[in-house]
């Protein structure tokens, strides 16, 4: 894929823990926090069917962790880049894993990371699977 991620592209944050969906069905901000690697993994899903996206999530996220796929949070790339000035986070192409991207450059302060994750969750559309 083009290493340049367009602002209009749809991105999926695959969710493999049920508590990453909030009680009202929305994406919980914890789903958007960086993981142990210090980044938040995303997949570029522009133009893909729901079934294809789910298959992708199982193949690259759920199955390797031996966890079920509960769904994904879908957000526009622009939702991430709009936060760069406020929080310093950046959106980066991260292949060779196909269609992979990451939200990188998270702030060192945990409270600031949470605030950034809350802003991301605010923009995310919850997509449950199946």
């Amino acid at each position: 894929m083009d290493p340049e991620i367009g602002d209009g592209e749809d991105l999926a944050n695959f969710i493999v823990e049920s508590n990453k969906f909030a009680s009202d069905g929305g994406v919980h901000f914890k789903a958007m926090l960086p993981d142990g690697s210090g980044e938040r993994s995303l997949f570029r899903i522009d133009g893909l069917s729901r079934e294809y996206i789910a298959a992708w999530g199982k193949a690259f996220v759920a199955n390797p962790r031996d966890k079920p796929l509960y769904g994904w949070g879908k957000l526009k790339a622009a939702s991430v880049t709009a936060l760069t000035a406020l929080f310093g986070i950046t959106l980066k192409w991260d292949e060779p894993q196909p269609r992979h991207a990451v939200i990188a450059d998270w702030p060192p302060e945990v409270e600031k990371r949470r605030a950034a994750a809350m802003e991301l969750a605010k923009c995310a559309e919850a997509c449950r699977w199946p």
């Binding site: 406020l86 302060e109 409270e111 600031k112 949470r114 605030a115 950034a116 809350m118 802003e119 605010k122």
Partner: peptide
């Protein structure tokens, strides 16, 4: 603390 309250930017 961290929080979002509607359309206002997040605070922390």
């Amino acid at each position: 603390w961290s929080g979002v309250g509607g359309t206002a930017p997040a605070v922390y």
